[in-house]
Design a binder for these strands. Sequence first.
DNA 1: AACTGAATTGAACTTAACTCAGGTTGATCT
DNA 2: AGATCAACCTGAGTTAAGTTCAATTCAGTT
Lengths: 206, 206
Amino acid sequence: MTRIVEPEAGPRSKRAAILTAAVDCFGEAGYEATKWSTVAERVGIGQTALYHYFESKTHCLLTIMRLELERSHDRFVEATKDVEDPVEALRTAVRAAYDVSPHEVLQMRILQNHMDLLSGTRRSKREEAERVAARQLVQVVERDWTNLLVKGMSQGSFPLRDAQLLGSSVLGLIVSVWRWYRPSGPTPLSEISELIEGACVRMVAS
Amino acid sequence: MTRIVEPEAGPRSKRAAILTAAVDCFGEAGYEATKWSTVAERVGIGQTALYHYFESKTHCLLTIMRLELERSHDRFVEATKDVEDPVEALRTAVRAAYDVSPHEVLQMRILQNHMDLLSGTRRSKREEAERVAARQLVQVVERDWTNLLVKGMSQGSFPLRDAQLLGSSVLGLIVSVWRWYRPSGPTPLSEISELIEGACVRMVAS
DNA sequence: AACTGAATTGAACTTAACTCAGGTTGATCT
DNA sequence: AGATCAACCTGAGTTAAGTTCAATTCAGTT
């Protein structure tokens, strides 16, 4: 469990700007469809300057994914920390999952579209470090949801079922939205949130 | 709605062999991680021979995705065609979705991992044709599930809800499995199938 | 045997990610 | 203020993988 230390930002570091630009590009055009040099342009630097901050295009992608996973986990913990009733906790967690900015929507999309990157090991050190960290965070987030279910089951609020499998399924249901949802689309996120919230409760509690 | 005509197989065509090899490679190592030339090797031809059958690596990928979508649709129709009761139809459809061979598991994985390809338009003719066909098939499959829900709702078997959104969600739940499921893993597909079947019924019918 | 179109190939081309050796900037210290 | 040094940046060149192309082989047909 080696933690990744965020490189402390020198005063003229463009790391944050690169991440922001990359999220916009990768999220809208897709990772493969966007040229690494385009990200550089958007930030206002030469393409080779990118390598001062990231070892590779993939390293940047993995970093975005890890950051998004950290965010998801933190948000889950923050939202559910003092909700006692399991059903309410579940509802709160679902609502929190959809309480996101447009930029975060892009990050979720990127994360979902490239989960498969977390399977195979990477060649370079820093890439592999990010990959492993992200992989672990996936498990952490899965455990967040599974624990919620376990608690509810042991309290008798939820019928007893395979909490592991059901947890993954609930999570899968929730994040599946990010594959098709577009802020510009016909369905507002609030409506989606409500429907999924109900669906999750029925899935788990009835 | 231009249908794609499957190129009729000349007696010594290697198209099928290429598709099989590509599914194995893309499914196990990942699309980007596998070199196009590796597929050629596995089939036993030079890399340039691939271009006699597919315009590009992406064209091959899109073809795999379209074929898998056609299969999913056909299987859904076949499985549910003479099941009257909506709840039974739903159960049957879910079971059919998980009644797949290991090779089909790979195809589903590939499909799910590259859905984002279907968003942006492609440069070349044949690629774009496959993309549009696949895109349409996604909608067809979504309609399959949505129609099932609509029927159940109008018959009073399911409570009235946004069938469109609920249909996408059910489908999203079902296919989310292919992102993590491995035949070699600890959980047998039968167990997954049963849990998801129950979850879908509760989601929709209660 | 000549013909035809499908199937195949080696060599060359293209593109985008990446490397490298060196140059610039600006925060900090004396 | 001037020196220093690490952070930051760049242009030129390399590499790897996908792709193109002109030429060739092969199998079946007339």
